[in-house]
């Protein structure tokens, strides 16, 4: 399996290089760091603009710019310099990743628990009223535009706060501007800020996963080994959990691994609405600030996430399902 993993990773290097090149061309043609400087009032002098172009490296040929970027990355591990003042791409990206990670871990935890419970219950009670109700609710969540739902949630949260005179829900940021002193209060503050964004993302993510879980649970329930287990006279509980659920979790695990990559690259909309300065907002603000190297850095990290999570998904599959052998 180690050999397999190494081979997969080596295989993905050319993809990564190819995609950075494609993306570099795209970024170079779509993100112009000069944009914010063109409409200054009072205007910058022509000499100042020329000097800026040199500073941003825009006077060099495109291929050389790519080469510089690539060698900088490979040899020095740097993402290149930002066109924003006082902005260290690596540092900012690290911070954004930490914020997103907080959001993603919370989301996956809640969504996964919900998905498994709903998936199993609906599979076991297939075609019951409960099944139809949860299925419909699940589909409803699948069909909600993220920002529409987030705006509504926020609205309700504030009405709740006002009606009860409490301050249970925070509508902005990953923590208070002036967090309370002490570790526990700080943890509480962070947790309080997590409620709304995590609920938003978890509800929107669990639905797809629960459908997935339901399907695989149904497949397992109808399989011959379950029939055998029941025929052997094992207790229904044991049959369901030892034999049923364990096997039915395999496909979900891989699916979650794949979706995690997407979540890690930032829930752009959720982060925007709740002003969480994670990966999604990092990307949006890089575009808005017309900062090509930041955009590149973000895309690179995202691509690595996808490749690694893909590999993990495959490995998990092989580990969990003895029938699959990786070669």
């Amino acid at each position: 399996m180690l050999v397999y993993s190494v081979r997969r990773l080596i295989q993905s290097i050319p993809i990564l290089v190819a995609s950075t090149f494609v993306i570099f061309l795209m970024v170079a043609s779509s993100v112009d760091p000069m944009t914010p400087y063109l409409t200054k009032k009072p205007p910058l002098s022509a000499a100042q603009l020329d000097s800026l172009r040199v500073k941003f490296g825009l006077t060099k040929p495109l291929l050389q710019r790519y080469w510089d970027w690539l060698t900088g990355l490979v040899l020095h591990g740097t993402f290149g310099s930002s066109t924003q003042t006082n902005y260290h791409i690596g540092q900012q990206l690290g911070y954004a990743m930490e914020v997103t990670l907080r959001l993603v871990v919370g989301t996956i935890l809640i969504a996964l628990i919900l998905a498994v419970i709903v998936g199993v219950v609906t599979a076991v009670r297939q075609y019951s009223k409960l099944d139809y109700a949860t299925t419909t609710i699940g589909f409803l969540f699948l069909s909600l535009p993220t920002f529409w739902f987030a705006v509504l949630l926020k609205e309700w949260a504030i009405q709740f706060n006002e009606a009860t005179g409490t301050h249970l829900f925070d509508t902005l940021w990953e923590s208070s501007p002036n967090p309370p002193a002490g570790f526990l209060p700080q943890l509480g503050d962070a947790a309080q800020h997590m409620i709304l964004p995590v609920v938003t993302l978890a509800l929107l993510s669990y639905a797809a996963w629960s459908r997935f879980q339901r399907a695989s649970m149904l497949e397992v329930l109808g399989s011959d080994y379950m029939r055998l287990a029941r025929a052997k006279g094992l207790s229904p509980f044991r049959v369901m959990f030892r034999h049923g659920l364990r096997n039915a979790l395999i496909p979900l695990t891989t699916q979650v691994a794949l979706d995690t990559a997407a979540l890690l690259s930032g829930a752009v909309i959720t982060e925007t609405i709740y002003s969480w300065r994670g990966m999604g907002l990092f990307f949006i603000s890089s575009i808005q600030m017309a900062d090509p190297n930041s955009v590149m850095a973000w895309l690179l990290v995202t691509a690595v996430f996808v490749i690694v999570m893909n590999l993990i998904a495959d490995l998990l599959y092989a580990v969990l399902d003895p029938r699959i052998r990786l070669a």
């Binding site: 295989q11 993905s12 050319p14 993809i15 990564l16 190819a18 995609s19 494609v22 993306i23 795209m26 970024v27 043609s29 779509s30 993100v31 997407a262 690259s265 930032g266 752009v268 990307f283 949006i284 575009i287 955009v295 973000w298 895309l299 995202t302 691509a303 996808v306 490749i307 893909n310």
Partner: peptide, 26 residues
Amino acid sequence: DTIMMRIADLFLTFPIIAIAIMLDNR
């Protein structure tokens, strides 16, 4: 198969929204 799927991976590597935003910007 390997080559074709790796090319497809290349498309999957980048989040849809990101690419759309960049092309749109352009």
